[in-house]
Amino acid sequence: MQLIFSGDAALAEIVWLSLRVSGIALFISTLAGIPAGALLALKRFRGRRFVVTLIYTGMAFPPVVIGLFVYIFLSRSGVLGGLNWWWVPSLFTPAAMIVAQTIIAFPLVAGFTMAAVMGVDPSLRVQVRALGASPWQSTWAILEEARTGVIAAVVAGFGGIISEVGAVMLVGGNIQGRTRVLTTAIVLETNKGNFSMALALGIILIGIAFVTNFFVLRLQGRTFE
């Protein structure tokens, strides 16, 4: 407890980097995942079944394997890393970790959003259109009705990346002061036998998850009333 509240700069940096990397990754995957999930739920198009299978596979994909693919793509001898394009992040940077976590969170957000939207009464769309909704307004109405599930999708995405260790370890490298996040620090401290520090980091991680879910539940509150 003393460690948690000591105001240690290194610890604060680890917590801040964890929140920053996972927060940005979640933001990007939410921005892409919610429309993708809604599209898959509401539109019928050629290849939809294949895309849904890919999303479901992505939901169950081991993060460490995603980390491995990202590593291969971003390494200097990899497909993207060798091109030296400015927008391709280098390995062992927070940007590379964000890429890996975005890929992990996207199928979770898209898949759960799709399930939530598909759970809305299909007659709602035609009934809101009859009340004068434009195509965009009717899609928004469906998303609003599915909001409990859509929020749960974002929570699942956040849970999938904030607690993830394999991918960030591979592409980030757990470099002190640069790419060390809560999960990789816990692994390191445990390996060093420094259990009190590992435990303190673990409590912080659980605390972040608790606080996040507390606010999410407040956001969903109207539905649970």
Binding site: D121, S123, L124, V126, Q127, A130, L131, G132, A141, E144, E145, T223
Partner: peptide
């Protein structure tokens, strides 16, 4: 123009 359907679907 608007319609009232046999089975109304109300918003939550």
């Amino acid at each position: 123009v608007t319609t009232v359907f046999q089975r109304p679907v109300l918003l939550q």
